[in-house]
């Protein structure tokens, strides 16, 4: 790779592939836990997505810089320590600046540590590639994760509570006057699974090569 080609075709695809064809949530099946648990409201989903983008990019770059020094026998522990330190930073920052959101996310900030998306990308990519490529890979995968998170939260908050980002959209549009009722079911945990299932269904109808055998 020439030094000037910071955005060569290969690097661009590192960034764009995880958004659709190789999406971490719907194709690689990584990082499902948090994708489902904190999608009741758009606000917590956005905060979570930003936290993961930060942890993922920094962890990818750090591990990629260290990749020649880490003995492969203890690499899991090293990766966990890098991730855990970054997550502690995120947790303290959230507690300091957006305390109410941090209360809502409860244990799920801590669970970024075991979010398999991050471990998976470190193992599969950062350990074998240069820092800049790893940064792009981290950014792409974190965005691929983030947009699924935000899409799920959008539908759950809109249909379940009739608000978006805490703003009462449906009420202001006057839809309740027509006899519409909120679907309280969407707020309950199981519907997050069904929503992701439907997103996967739509994606695979469009993109036939992702279809699995039974």
């Amino acid at each position: 790779m020439s030094k000037n080609a910071l955005f060569s075709k290969k690097n661009r695809s590192l960034l764009t592939d995880p958004l659709d064809d190789n999406n971490p949530v719907t194709v690689q099946v990584l990082g499902i836990c948090s994708a489902l648990a904190i999608t009741v409201q758009l606000k917590s989903a956005v905060v979570m997505a930003l936290s993961v983008i930060f942890v993922m990019c920094v962890a990818n770059v750090v591990v990629s810089l260290l990749r020649k020094f880490i003995p492969s026998r203890i690499r899991i522990i090293v990766q966990l320590v890098v991730i855990a330190s970054l997550v502690i930073i995120v947790d303290e920052v959230l507690k300091a600046y957006v305390y109410d959101v941090s209360k809502e996310l409860t244990v799920f900030v801590g669970l970024i540590i075991t979010n398999c998306i991050i471990m998976g990308r470190l193992e599969a990519f950062a350990l074998a590639n240069s820092p800049w490529e790893s940064f792009l890979d981290g950014l792409g995968n974190a965005f691929g994760y983030g947009w699924i998170l935000i899409a799920v939260a959008f539908f759950r908050e809109l249909l379940g509570a009739g608000t978006l980002y805490g703003y009462p959209v449906l009420e202001n549009l006057g839809i309740y006057d027509l006899g519409y009722e909120n679907n309280g079911m969407m707020i309950l945990p199981p519907m997050a699974l069904v929503t992701v299932g439907v997103i996967i269904w739509i994606q695979r109808m469009r993109n036939k090569k992702l279809i699995e055998s039974n």
Binding site: P190, G197, R204
Partner: peptide, 18 residues
């Protein structure tokens, strides 16, 4: 076809959750 594998597993888990 588009729901095979992962998709249907998600939806079944949702139903079990209910």
């Amino acid at each position: 076809p588009a729901l095979r594998g992962l998709g249907i597993t998600f939806i079944i888990t949702g139903l079990m959750g209910i």
